[in-house]
Amino acid sequence: MDQLNEFGPEAQALVRRAGTRDVTITSWDAPGATPAVLSGLVAERRMIGPMLEEVLHPIAGASGASFNRADFLTFNRLEGRWQYMSMDSRAPDGLMSAFSLDADPEQRVFMSFQPFATPNISGTSAIGQMLRMEQVIVRQDADHEVKDQYFTAAGSTPVKWLGNRYSYTRRK
């Protein structure tokens, strides 16, 4: 047990990712949609045991609605794979969990989420839309990282598209 609880190379890599980052989110609501860009965000990262916690929120005085988004990333040494969980006050999707299939290197972690329903608003009514989601976290260098989230709507002709891109730059 002690050996499994020790920080392995993956947890050591997460330690190096702790700190404060400026973030820009680019979002596409559907395949081919015009992107919406949200800047003026900060991510505060810290280690909680072997987990990297990230709390994302607008900087003080930023325009737009206030929100908080928290996520946790860890490498489960017993299972030999990455695990992830997020929650976002902007969306009614609840807790979202994901995992890698393999022990990806920390420079590029590919994870699949449990399918989830999200509201699809049309006019004055809202219905649920089932989505599958994949996330790829790419560490470009010590100061830059990108988190891409790909969505596939359930249905007979599924189309995967890049839905969100989180671009991170470490504050000096």
Rank of each mutant, 00 (worst) to 15 (best):
S89N: 06
A91L: 13
A65L: 09
P158N: 10
Q149P: 01
S112Y: 10
G80Y: 11
M85Y: 06
A33M: 08
F72N: 08
A30Q: 13
T74I: 02
N5L: 13
L78A: 13
R90W: 09
A33D: 12
A33V: 06
V109D: 06
R165I: 01
W161Y: 11
L162Q: 05
F72H: 08
M96T: 01
M47L: 15
I59N: 05
G163Q: 00
D141I: 04
Q135H: 05
L101F: 15
S125G: 06
F110N: 11
G40R: 05
E10M: 15
V146E: 12
A103H: 13
M51C: 10
M87Y: 12
R139I: 15
V159M: 06
S27A: 14
I127R: 07
G94T: 04
Q107H: 15
P119Y: 03
P9L: 10
R17Q: 14
E134Y: 01
D88V: 01
P31H: 05
Q135L: 10
P119F: 03
D148W: 00
Q149N: 05
N68Q: 07
G128W: 10
L41E: 00
D104W: 13
A70V: 12
P115T: 09
A142Y: 12
T169G: 04
S167H: 04
R170M: 06
F99G: 03
P58I: 00
I137T: 14
A153I: 05
T74W: 08
R69I: 04
A13K: 06
R46F: 13
V15H: 12
L95C: 01
N164R: 11
T118L: 02
V146P: 00
H144G: 03
S66H: 07
L56Q: 04
G128Y: 11
T152F: 09
P119S: 11
A62S: 10
G94H: 05
S167W: 03
S97M: 12
V159D: 04
M87E: 04
E6H: 01
Y84Q: 04
G128R: 07
P50M: 02
T74G: 00
T74L: 11
F7S: 06
S39R: 03
P58T: 01
L38I: 08
A18E: 14
R132N: 12
A103T: 14
L95K: 00
E6A: 11
R45N: 13
Y166D: 00
F151I: 01
V23W: 01
E79P: 02
R139S: 10
D88Q: 02
E79S: 11
L4E: 08
S27N: 08
L4G: 05
A98C: 04
E53W: 14
E79W: 13
T152W: 07
G163V: 03
S66I: 07
W82N: 05
M51T: 12
P158C: 04
L95M: 04
S27M: 12
R17K: 14
A117R: 06
S122H: 07
A91T: 09
V42S: 08
